[in-house]
Amino acid sequence: MLSAEGLRHAYGRVVALDGVSLTLAPGQTLAIFGPNGAGKTTLLKVLAGLIRPQQGWARVAGGRRAIGWIGHQSHLYGHLSVRENLLFWAALYGVASVQRGGRATAILERLGLSDRAGQPVRSLSRGLAQRAAIAKALVHDPPVLLLDEPFTGLDLAAAAQLRTLLGELRGAGRVVVLATHNVDEGVELATDVAFQRQGRFVQLAPRGARGAAEIAEAYRRAVTDA
C-alpha cells in the first residue's frame, strides 16, 4: 500500500534523507522517532508527493487521493467555518457532492466538534483547531494517514482522544505513518518503529512486545551511539 526505496534528498549540503526504504501493508502503523532536523518531515513530504526526492522513489496505492495529511499547520482557512473548510477539502479530494455533508457531519461528531461546526476557524483555540485539522485529514476517508507531530498543541484529553481515534483507524485496515520527536507519543499505536537520525533510519523493526520504556531506551541509544 505504501512503499519507498532508496530515498535520498538534500537541501544544499544538509542531507535530509539518506537511503531510506520502507514498505507498509494495510493495518501497519509506523512510528518514526527522531530528533529535530532528523529528516522526518522531509520523509513524510516525499511520501505525500510534496517533494520529489533527488534519488529513489515513493509510491502510495491510490495516489494523492488516498492520503490524509496532518502537518505542522492546520491547512484551514481562518475566515471559513469548520464545516465550510471540511466541505472545501472534501470537494478537492473528490468526495461526491451528495456525500460531502454527511461525511463532514460524521467526522465532526466523531471528533467532538459538532457544536463548533459553524464557528470560523480563526476563533478556535489551538487544540480545537488541531482537532479541526484532523477532521480535515479524515474527511475523505483516506486509506493512508501521514501524521507529522499530530499531538502538538493538544491538551491531555484531546491527545488521548486522538490516540483512541488513530487506534480505531489502524484497526480499519489503514496504513499510518506517524513522525514525532517525542517517544512517549504514539508508541502504543505503532506496529513498527523506526529511529531516524541525520536522514537515515538507524533502526526499523516491528515493535513486538516492547513497551514505551524499552522503545525510549532503544531510541536514546540509537540516536546517541550511531
Binding site: A48, G49, L50, G63, R64, R65, I67, W69, G71, Q73, H75, W89, L92, Y93, G94, K136
Partner: peptide, 8 residues
C-alpha cells in the same frame, strides 16, 4: 501545502 498535497 495542503493544496499541494491534495489531488488538486
Amino acid at each position: 501545502e495542503g493544496l499541494l498535497v491534495s489531488p488538486l
